[in-house]
């Protein structure tokens, strides 16, 4: 069992260091800390202009959404960059469980997403004057962690498609754009059509954003736990889907000899 944890934990961290493209501090800060902050400001001012919802709705919702940037692209890169760098064959030749290898890779990206979401929320709350009760902080951290983990598994699911389709970053770019709309982070759910709400219910972020908003509004952790639980359930669903797709596409790519086709 300890060997499995080592494979998942240490393997994930090593792969993160090898495959993550934005390793210099300036690129990390610019892309993952400052960029999402401007995204939040954009929607916060848009929300203020139309008076659709208050600052808390936009600041907290978009802070949760910022986790998606690192986690969805990261989860995708965890598979796609192996192929791009020519190392996918070596990974798939490993005698260890590839499912464990790839699931472990999500963890550093989820940690990254949590850092980004927490820093974005902190800076935005300070700059835009949102007061969050101190008692809400542990619950908020839990909601952000759940969102990050779910986004990571969602990204890994998209990355698994990279074993079958050539341009997986097209899929991840489109997916991140769709999260803006379908998760109800920027438009209150009751203003969205039922179809969009239904899709949003099985996407990452939706339930975590709901939980985080409740907590920031003064609700207790007990009130927010059901939504956090649903978010984690969605995450588990994507983890299972990713594992299934990785197994199927790995077998297919071996059969079709298309492993390193770019």
């Amino acid at each position: 069992m300890s060997a499995l944890f080592r494979l998942v934990g240490v393997g994930g961290v090593i792969a993160y260091r090898a495959l993550f493209n934005w390793t210099t501090p300036s690129i990390f800060v610019g892309t993952l800390l400052v960029g999402p902050l401007f995204q939040l400001f954009f929607f916060a001012y848009l929300g203020r202009e139309f008076g659709v919802a208050d600052d808390r709705f936009y600041i907290v919702g978009n802070a949760v959404l910022t986790a998606a940037l690192a986690c969805v692209y990261g989860g995708t890169m965890a598979v796609a960059n192996e192929r791009r760098f020519g190392t996918l064959g070596h990974v798939l030749l490993s005698p260890r469980s590839r499912t464990a290898i790839f699931l472990g890779r999500v963890l550093p990206y989820a940690g990254n997403g949590l850092l980004i979401a927490a820093s974005t929320l902190t800076v935005a709350a300070l700059l835009l004057g949102l007061r969050i009760p101190a008692t809400a902080l542990p619950g908020l951290l839990l909601a952000l962690a759940a969102a990050s983990l779910t986004c990571g598994f969602f990204g890994l699911t998209l990355g698994a498609l990279g074993l079958r389709f050539r341009d997986v970053f097209l899929i991840s770019n489109v997916a991140v754009a769709l999260l803006l709309l379908f998760t109800g982070v920027n438009v209150p759910a009751d203003s969205l059509p039922a179809g969009i709400r239904a899709v949003g219910a099985v996407l990452p972020i939706t339930h975590a954003a709901d939980a985080a908003r409740r907590l920031a509004g003064g609700a207790t952790l007990g009130d927010a736990l059901p939504a956090i639980g649903v978010e984690l359930a969605v995450g588990v669903g994507y983890a299972v889907l990713a594992a299934g797709l990785l197994t199927v596409f790995e077998a297919e790519s071996r059969r079709r000899a298309s492993l390193d086709t770019l």
């Binding site: 929300g47 139309f50 008076g51 489109v174 754009a177 709309l181 209150p188």
Partner: peptide, 19 residues
């Protein structure tokens, strides 16, 4: 695709904002 998603978002926001 991405601008269309943003346009959709904007349309729902404008509608929700009574505009």
């Amino acid at each position: 695709f991405v601008p269309v998603v943003q346009a959709t978002l904007a349309v729902y926001l404008f509608r929700a904002g009574g505009e």
